[in-house]
Each structure stands twice: as structure tokens, then as C-alpha cells.
Design a binder for these strands. Structure first.
Lengths: 197, 197
DNA sequence: CGGAAGATTGAGCGTAGTCAAACCGAGTGG
DNA sequence: CCACTCGGTTTGACTACGCTCAATCTTCCG
């Protein structure tokens, strides 16, 4: 918890398959600013973005107690050559990450603070439910500040957006506990955000 | 020119290596909004984001006369199994795309319109110069509206940002012709934007 | 108890969005 | 040749959303 799985700029050696827990991956710029660019969790692969440069492209920090499976990249490459099925799996995963990044980029465009936050919660909800947890009620592992950085907003705006969603009766928020009142309502209200075509 | 290389939702069959020309890849949402998420050009690989879902994840449109090398994906997979060097190359390219996406996401965060535009121009400049063209002077292949969509701004704001950069003497803009007055000044003024750590 | 970090809320301000008008160049057709 | 349209661009005026600064409150931990 709070520990770094890898740090931006370090030599790239491992990729990690997340088995449990939540992480944040962040980029820091030379001007001191820091931006969170993903919240990897169960089922995600961490570190693929270091393949190209040979350096870890981002710093990945655990937000809670987590378990990962570290996979040394160099042997993996050999293994891939001998196991086409595995290779296909790795390629698919990278394609998945790419597509997910695209979708996210989309969010940052012409959407209001409330819409961004709603889309973020919907995304979380879907990922939780894909792994057997409740889609309606869950604990956020990340602070308002981290959500803000991720969505390109200020943390005060995140706070206000939560309050606004609650005022509209769409969810109940208590600290980091989120309960979506009626998932169908919520999803219908914001479905256009993440659905393509 | 103006033709689609592939369309969002179509079965995924090919990836394309760009030999010349410029493209835009865009996502369209169910609410009708459209977002440009990349401007692939010479040296880039298009279509990797379809690997995971088996569908083209975005619509890719030529912005000028262009040449691409189409590579059928299914045979490529077999080939990769027999050619580890090529496989490594493909993985690197995907990692590169991933990292590039991350950097972009970063831009959408807490940066002003002028900074985003400048970063966009710097990125273009670097890509042009990497392929033997002038880093100081080039033609934009895309409209203000397309730049706006890409950067998550309105096209009027793009226009104003160009004017502002010109007023500051950093560049000269005439329709789609861009001349950066002193590349070093320009880069120093905005270097923090894309440089990590 | 005191200090620190997180969260919420308010007040004021500024940047960028929206709406609108005008201009320009390229096509098209009378 | 000129009139017309259409898409792209620029600029202005007004508005609004979100940022900044600030105060307050809670929780957590030393």
C-alpha cells in the first residue's frame, strides 16, 4: 500500500499482471506537474508502455493491499516465440489497452465535469462487476485529488460534481463509499459517454 | 484523400504501415459526437487497437494523398511466431503507441489552450523532422476544427491561440502554413509540456 | 491534544465555450 | 464573367463553467 511497483525512467524489466488491488499510474513532467493516466486493477496488465523505450514509462503505485504477478519481459519474449497462443493473448491485451486509452482521451474532450465523473464511475462500475463485485455499490480506492488529476479537473470540482449527482438523486456518496441509486437510470442518463457508435 | 482506410465497427482484418501522407483517426459516440484521437503519419502503424475486439476501433481517414502498406493480420500472427525479431518490432511499436497515448492524455489535463496548441505543433515538428522534413516550417494537413477536436477545444479557441502565438512573435501562421520563428525559443518556452521527468 | 491530509463549500475571477457576423478561396452554374 | 454557395477561418461580445483562494470540518495518527 502506497508502494511503487515501478518508477518512471527506471530500466524496463517486468510487466505485471494484477491479481487483486488497485493501482494508479502517473506521469510526471519536468515542470513538476503530475498526471494520473490510469487506475489499473484486477485483470489488467501493467507496464507494457515501457516496451518501446526500454524504460518504465510511468510510475505505478499501489492504492491498497494488492497482489501482482511479475513477469520478466526478456524471457517472456522467448516464450512468446514458442507459444503462439500466448503471443496472441499478449497482443490482444496490448490492443485492449490501446483502445481503452483512446476511449479515455475521448472523455477529456467536450464533456462537463459532471459527465466526466459519471463516466469514470460507470467505467469503475463495469470493471468491478466484470470481476464479480457489485456494480451498484463500491468503495473508491483513490482520493478526490487523484480522481481530479485523472479527469483533468480540480479536486474541488470533483467534490462539487459528487454533491450535484447526489442532489439529483443519482447516487449516494459518503466519503469513499459510492452507491448508485438506480444503475439503469444512471447508465441511461450517461450512456452516450462511453458507448461508441 | 478524404477516403476511409477503415471504419469503426468493421471487422478487423488489416493493419497498415503509413509510408506517406497524413491520416486522422476518429471515434464517434452514440450521441453523435465525434472525437479525433490521433493523426497517424509516416512511420506509424494504424489499426492495432482493433486487435483486442476483432473490430476496427476507430475510423481512419486520409487527409491528403497517402500511401500505406496493408498487412493482413491473420497471416502476420503466423509470421510473428516464426520471426522473433519481427515480433519484437511489433511489440515495440504497440508499446510506443501506448506511451504516446499516455503523453497525449497528459496534455488534456491542466493545460491552457495556447499550451495545448503549442505542444501539438511541437509534436508535429518533431515528427516531421524525424522523417527529413523541416522542423521549422510545414503545412498543416488538418483543419482548425480537426485540431480543435483532437485537443478538446473549440475551433474558435484554436484560431485565437494561433493568433496569440503569432502576436507573441513565436510563429507565423498563414492559413495552414506554419513557420516557427525561432525553434529554440519556441521549444524552450513550451518544453515542459511534453518532456517527462 | 495537536498536526496533517482529505473533503466540502463559498466567493470571485478568468479562460474558454457559444453565438454571431464577416471574410476568404474554391467550386459551380447561370 | 459574375453570382452564388459552401467550408474554413477570424474576430467580437457575452456567458458560464471550472479554477483559485480560503475557511471549515472530519478523520486519522502521532
Amino acid at each position: 500500500m502506497g508502494h511503487d511497483l515501478c518508477r518512471q525512467g527506471e530500466p524496463f524489466e517486468f510487466i505485471y499482471a494484477v491479481r487483486s488491488g488497485t493501482f494508479k499510474s502517473s506521469l510526471s513532467l519536468s515542470n513538476g506537474h503530475q498526471q494520473i493516466c490510469a487506475f489499473p486493477m484486477c485483470g489488467d496488465i501493467i507496464g507494457m508502455d515501457g516496451v518501446a523505450s526500454g524504460q518504465c514509462a510511468s510510475t505505478v503505485t499501489a492504492l491498497d493491499d494488492a497482489q501482482v504477478c511479475a513477469i520478466a519481459y526478456a524471457p517472456l519474449v522467448d516464450l512468446l516465440a514458442r507459444d503462439p497462443a500466448l503471443q496472441r493473448r499478449v497482443n490482444r491485451q496490448m490492443g485492449y489497452e490501446l483502445a481503452r486509452g483512446r476511449r479515455l482521451l475521448l472523455l477529456m474532450g467536450p464533456f462537463s465535469a459532471q459527465e466526466r465523473l459519471a463516466a469514470f464511475l460507470l467505467d469503475l462500475s463495469q470493471r468491478f462487476s466484470a470481476h464479480g463485485y457489485s456494480a451498484r455499490e463500491f468503495n473508491l480506492r483513490m482520493s478526490r485529488i487523484e480522481i481530479a488529476s485523472f479527469l483533468g479537473l480540480s479536486h474541488e470540482t470533483i467534490s462539487r460534481a459528487f454533491s450535484a449527482l447526489q442532489r439529483e438523486g443519482l447516487l449516494h456518496i459518503d466519503k469513499r463509499r459510492v452507491r448508485i441509486t438506480v444503475l439503469e437510470h444512471f447508465a441511461r442518463r450517461f450512456e452516450a459517454l462511453l458507448r461508441v457508435d
